[in-house]
Design a protein around this nucleic acid. Structure first.
Lengths: 183, 183
DNA sequence: GCCTCCATATAGACCGGTCACTATAATACC
DNA sequence: GGTATTATAGTGACCGGTCTATATGGAGGC
């Protein structure tokens, strides 16, 4: 190897940020390259599939980011109720930080590309499933049966995804914090 | 008036369908014009603001479509629980019908344009608020206090929006039907 | 220690195609 | 006649993607 692939990560992170804020299709490769200070040649070197490959990588990266956050919350809060409150508080914080201009890091890219792009669809599904698994574990370790835990966890993730949309449109934390009432 | 504005409605309905399936930015005006068999001159006659105006109209139209559906369900099901089951069944039907290729008629367009486009953001917010109002009315007429009804209704809409995403990605009705457990 | 080799990575000009949009004229209906 | 609508040709800008040329820096020969 000659150089370390220093540009790859910056490319993915920039793409993730831009896709999240302004959508996948509205974000041109040109903008991603400019903001990440990466030459076009490098993009197609690391992502031979071009924009779709970059989109897939961005969804995977975003999925990891959220999963890690959830795992941290799960470790800190043994009680499901406290965990859920923490989850809501964190997401509400993200939204407020961005000035209600960004949403879920995967939802936008996913809605624009599922199911047309199998790669992005698969990456998105894997990401969401991993989130559900973390939440389900919090429920099941508190004594709730496996099946019920999974079902509850799915509902929590769904409610949060929807709440993120409502929060963005209404420029308010309130819909997200409401999710905490779900138990 | 010379001709009746017969093209306007077809334009909006076609735009709504395409935005819903493949996203706002990925849908070219050319495709909308072809599929609606409308000349380009008409588009800019009816929508001087161009694509953004068409997007706004599509969101408004989609909002009405869902609100009407919800009102129908509310009239048919006095009991909140039955209403919610009906809501889930209807949405699950929509998803299955489309082969899990379309999502919520407003969510995609909204996520791509909020808050950059004030017009679309405003239309989306109005649509969602009207849905929440219908659901809240079902709760409050069954004896639940006003405040609690609104809160519950918002959670129902959020959960459904999220469930539609999960359904699309997982190509399954299950996440939507799960929302019925929310009460 | 030094040099050559060569895959990796960087660099950016260039491509055809499509984008949203405009201009202007012709047409249909009251 | 006057207005609403349709029709078409054309605008520059930008799209994602391809291409070729050039740096870079470790591996192996000596």
């Amino acid at each position: 190897m000659a150089n370390a692939p220093k540009h790859k990560e910056k490319l993915v992170r920039t793409a993730m940020r831009l896709f999240r804020r302004q959508g996948y299709a509205s974000t041109g490769l040109q903008q991603i390259l400019e903001e990440s200070e990466t030459p076009k040649g490098s993009l197609y070197h690391y992502f031979p599939n071009g924009k779709e490959g970059l989109g897939e990588a961005a969804v995977i990266e975003a999925g990891k980011l959220v999963r890690t956050t959830l795992e941290g919350l799960a470790a800190r809060h043994p009680d499901p109720k406290a965990f859920l409150r923490g989850y809501c508080a964190t997401m509400a914080g993200w939204m407020a930080e961005s000035g209600y201009r960004s949403g879920c890091p995967v939802a936008t890219t996913l809605l624009e590309n599922a199911p047309q792009s199998p790669a992005i669809t698969k990456a998105g599904r894997a990401a969401i499933d991993s989130w559900i698994a973390v939440v389900a574990e919090v429920y099941s370790r508190s004594g709730i049966p496996q099946r019920e835990s999974s079902s509850k966890a799915q509902l929590v993730i769904a409610a949060m995804e929807g709440a993120l949309i409502l929060s963005r449109v209404g420029k308010s934390k309130q819909p997200i914090l409401e999710v905490a009432k779900l138990i």
